[in-house]
């Protein structure tokens, strides 16, 4: 019983540690907000890459290692899980709110086609380029406030 309770506490603490690790490309989001933490067990954490070529993947693994070590979880292993592939549907509600506040339009929910400008909220927007500043973003422009912005692509 005691061992079980301790394991449960550990899992909760590890989640808290992971919530403190920011995404290197969008530092307002934690890796938990981003939905890339796929499993937490007493001795193991599984992460999934957002995009296969995402250069942040290695940085994230290094940051997680450092955060776990600092919190006394030196023995916790970090695995990479490719399957099932990451999807933007795993970005949390909290993550979406943070994205908008940061000036990035969050990925559209399924079936939604209107992109609202994260600056002024207008929906009179257009795509400039399918590929934005990082692999996960597209470049958009708001015709109401004339500002460009990033859209987190659905994936």
């Amino acid at each position: 019983m005691v061992a079980l309770a301790r394991a449960r506490d550990d899992v909760e603490r590890i989640w808290a540690v992971l919530e403190s690790v920011p995404d290197p490309e969008i530092p307002v989001l934690s890796i938990v907000d981003l939905g890339i933490v796929r499993a937490v067990e007493p001795g193991r954490v599984a992460l999934t890459p957002t995009y296969t070529g995402c250069p942040a993947t290695q940085v994230i693994e290094r940051d997680v290692r450092a955060a776990l070590d600092a919190a006394g979880y030196r023995g916790v292993r970090i695995d990479t899980a490719l399957s099932p592939p990451w999807t933007t549907a795993w970005i949390s509600e909290e993550g979406r709110r943070k994205l908008r506040a940061y000036g990035i339009a969050p990925p559209l929910p399924a079936g939604e086609r209107t992109v609202a400008c994260p600056q002024c909220g207008a929906t009179d927007t257009e795509e400039i380029s399918r590929f934005g500043s990082t692999p996960c973003k597209a470049l958009w422009r708001c015709r109401a406030c004339a500002e460009p912005f990033d859209l987190f692509k659905c994936h």
């Binding site: 995009y51 296969t52 070529g53 590929f131 934005g132 500043s133 470049l139």
Partner: peptide, 20 residues
Amino acid sequence: VEVDLSLANMALDLIGQATL
């Protein structure tokens, strides 16, 4: 610049596949 970004990002995707 938009095309530059898109080509670089495609390159990254492909190199990511190659790594795996």
